[in-house]
């Protein structure tokens, strides 16, 4: 199990940031991803592995419709 924005989410072997975003259907273009407080650059999403127990933040930079 991992945490995504403070809420539990099932972990699986080989889970990358890219896969997580797909699973959560997070399609908004302006986001900041952090794993255990380390910011992940967008070009690392496909390779950045998420480990079991990690604390992941996916902050959407949208505060206005």
């Amino acid at each position: 199990m991992i945490k995504v924005n403070g809420r539990e989410f099932p972990w699986e072997e080989g889970l990358t940031v890219k896969k997580l975003l797909q699973k959560k259907n997070y399609t908004f273009p302006s986001i900041v991803v952090k794993i255990n407080d380390r910011t992940i650059a967008e070009d690392e999403y496909a390779d950045a592995l998420i480990e079991d127990g990690d604390d992941v933040k996916v902050i959407h930079l949208i505060t206005g419709g």
Binding site: N5, R7, V58, I59, H60, I62, T63, G64, G65
Partner: peptide
């Protein structure tokens, strides 16, 4: 308009 801050980001 705070839906993402609240619902998605849980901030």
């Amino acid at each position: 308009w705070l839906i993402f801050m609240d619902m998605v980001n849980n901030q």
